[in-house]
């Protein structure tokens, strides 16, 4: 499991995370909600080693990830699917998937090929478009590719930064169906979302992040009954 304690991260003088503590259990979907500027993406970047924290600790299945560089975090089994998809636009779909296996041992070529086939089974559209440049895919297809690419590293836990952003509602449903499947397959997921209604369908645990602090932690049931959250995120009074 992932256990974060009092994590602080800043950009120069601006403190984006002011002591965040949260736990994400194995096999569960832990959802982090919060408005723009709450520090959600900063938290994702800090967890995946792209930014270094000033203070606090990150513990992942008994190993400390605090201050580790991005490649090492990935090798430990924590993979990030960045916000806005970020595929390699001039590389083919297949090459993007291969890039996802970058940290894996070069000798298990056959296993990597087998995993690519698994990805094609899970995301049939990627199989159809495997020789196409990733930049020519639609937004939804790129999101699938970004997900598949992260899965190619065989992570223990997936960090999903706003997978629904900028996608049509039908596509959002598809993305969440995939998340549900991954959860059923036993993958642990930390999901950052603004789409609370969809997040409620998959999440086991919720954290609310606001201005760099955790302001709520609880189960979906507790969240739906919380007045403040109901008004701010679920609409209606």
């Amino acid at each position: 499991m992932l256990s974060i304690n009092n994590l602080e991260t800043s950009y120069g003088l601006i403190k984006a995370l002011k002591g965040v503590s949260l736990d994400a259990a194995e096999g569960e979907v832990t959802c982090i909600l919060g408005p723009n500027g709450a520090g959600k993406t900063t938290l994702m970047f800090t967890l995946s080693g792209i930014i270094k924290p000033d203070a606090g600790s990150i513990d992942f299945f008994g190993t400390s990830l605090t201050g580790l560089a991005a490649p090492k975090v990935l090798r430990e089994g924590l993979a990030l699917v960045p916000e806005n998809r970020l595929v390699f636009p001039l590389m083919s779909v297949r090459e993007n998937l291969l890039a996802g296996a970058y940290t894996r041992n070069r000798s298990d070529k056959d296993e990597v090929e087998a995993d690519i086939e698994k990805m094609f089974a899970r995301f049939p559209v990627l199989k159809e478009r495997q020789e196409q440049n990733a930049g020519t895919l639609s937004g939804g297809e790129q999101q699938m590719l970004a997900l598949a690419r992260a899965l190619m590293s065989r992570p223990k836990m997936l960090l999903l930064d706003e997978p629904s952003v900028g996608l049509a509602p039908v596509i959002v449903n598809e993305v969440f169906a995939i998340i549900k499947q991954l959860k059923e397959d036993g993958l642990s997921i930390v999901l950052v979302e603004q789409n609370v209604v969809k997040a409620l369908e998959v999440a086991d645990h919720f954290y609310l992040l606001d201005q760099g602090r955790v302001t709520f932690a609880g189960t979906p049931g507790e969240m739906e009954n919380d007045d403040v959250i109901k008004r701010a995120y679920l609409g209606g009074g």
Binding site: P71, L74, F88, Y102
Partner: peptide, 21 residues
């Protein structure tokens, strides 16, 4: 070469694929 191009196309994506930027 693929690693160089990956960084050129999107350095954040390259980083999250485990490339040492």
């Amino acid at each position: 070469g693929a690693v160089l191009r990956a960084v050129g196309e999107d350095d954040l994506a390259a980083q999250s694929s485990g490339v040492n930027l």
